[in-house]
Design a protein around this nucleic acid. Structure first.
Length: 366
RNA sequence: GGGGGAUUUCCCGAGCGGUCAAAGGGGGCAGACUGUAAAUCUGUUGUCAACGACUUCGGAGGUUCGAAUCCUCCAUCCCCCA
């Protein structure tokens, strides 16, 4: 399912494709997050215009509401939400971390207290897979055990080993005509744990691999270091997915080191919260300085938000008009898509390093 | 003509002798957000040479060690009886 098209001659960045039952994805790629079967605020037709090729859905959330059997009976997640391109579903592993206060975890699996009605939700690895199969996503993530950072070595090792055991169970539970499973490397910021995890999972021969458990409390540099000592142990001939990352500079740092795939709520959530991403760093559109600013967010951006002035967008947020969050979400997704598109082009010319240097310099100036 | 009630920091609105630069909203300003319990959350919002000082609670006087809080007069607004 993964094809390596070109390896940049001067850094770890690589250009590839990911072939799924619902289409081919150009790598490196960024997936907008659509937890509940919707990329919040963006109608599918507009989402397609951002350049996004693959989106995310969530096992835990969709299982709770509306329930995977309802999605299945309505034709599967693609038909249900109207997105005909590839969909990757996250397993609920991240919710073990983000909903830790209402979650219990043991070898059997995770047990959630539903955040909606308080009822008990049992999620063993096998069930996480069955739900994703009912949803009919193109790529299913194995259920992993995500822990916060920093954390002690024992906790990290236990979570890592459990993640490996669960990955095996997920693989054995697989029974779907086209769905592929990605395994997830855990191990926190410990090089040895990361390496062991990557090696054990590689032996299980999954069609793709993810790096999980990052951007959960560590510094950016620690995250980049973790990539440096983890990626070398991940199969070269398989796609590598850095889960939940990140800011534009994080994406570039991932690509530089050989990551193919990313997802993050940042363009959508921050867009809803009035932050617009640009090459010159993020703009907080609620700030008074944009009141009389007649410029678009980005002169070169083709998105609908950039057909309007910053002053107008600020007005929408101050007036709490729903179009503000919608337009900024579309802009941000478009920005991320253009960022990875430019990265792909740079890799093809063996110029990613230069692209990285100049773009990072602009992003982080001030 | 008579009786009663109001007037608080940008707005609304608490306060009813000290612990009040003054609750709480709103508005303003700023910040955060990384596999979405987030169209959310946090901070700040009299002035200054600011861990202290100064000026504020319609206006002017007064009582008191001390007043946004009590008294007198004035101004403005509202209600009731004529």
């Amino acid at each position: 399912m993964y094809t390596l098209l070109h390896q940049d001659a001067h850094c770890g960045a690589r250009r590839g494709t990911l072939t799924t039952a619902h289409g081919i994805v150009q790598l490196p790629a960024f997936m907008p997050v659509g937890t509940l079967g919707t990329v919040k605020g963006v109608e599918i037709g507009l989402l397609e215009q951002t350049g996004a090729e693959m989106i995310l859905g969530n096992t835990y959330h969709l299982s709770l509401r509306p329930g995977e059997e309802i999605v299945r009976s309505l034709g599967g997640l693609h038909q249900f939400c109207g997105w005909n391109g590839p969909i990757l579903t996250d397993s609920g592993g991240f919710q073990i971390f983000s909903l830790a206060k209402i979650t219990k975890i043991d070898e059997q699996g995770a047990t959630f207290r539903s955040h909606i009605d308080g009822s008990k939700i049992v999620l063993p690895p096998e069930r996480a897979i069955k739900i994703q199969e009912a949803l009919g996503s193109d790529i299913a993530m194995v259920l992993d055990h995500v822990v916060a950072l920093p954390n002690d070595r024992k906790t990290l090792e236990d979570a890592m080993l459990r993640t490996v055991r669960w990955a095996k169970r997920c693989k054995e539970a697989a029974d779907h005509p086209y769905q592929k499973q990605f395994a997830i490397v855990q191990g926190g910021l410990d090089p040895e744990l990361r390496r062991r995890c990557a090696e054990m999972l590689a032996e299980l021969d999954f069609p793709g691999y993810a790096i999980g458990g990052l951007s959960v409390g560590e510094t950016p540099q620690e995250m980049y270091d973790a990539l440096d000592f983890t990626l070398p142990y991940m199969p070269v001939e398989k796609p590598r997915y850095l889960m939940g990352v990140g800011k534009p500079e994080d994406i570039l740092n991932g690509i530089l080191r050989g990551v193919d795939l990313f997802d993050c709520v940042m363009p959508t959530r921050n867009g809803r919260n009035a932050q617009a991403f640009t090459d010159d760093g993020p703009l907080r559109l609620r700030n008074a300085k944009y009141q009389r600013d007649g410029r678009p967010l980005d002169e070169t951006c083709p998105c609908p938000a950039c057909k309007r002035s910053r002053g107008y967008l600020r007005h929408l947020f101050i007036a709490e008009e729903m179009l503000g969050p919608i337009l900024l979400t579309i802009h941000n997704i478009t920005y991320y898509q253009r960022l990875v598109a430019r990265a792909r082009e740079a890799i093809e010319r063996n110029r990613f390093r230069e692209f990285y240097d100049t773009t990072i310099a602009r992003l982080t100036q001030d």
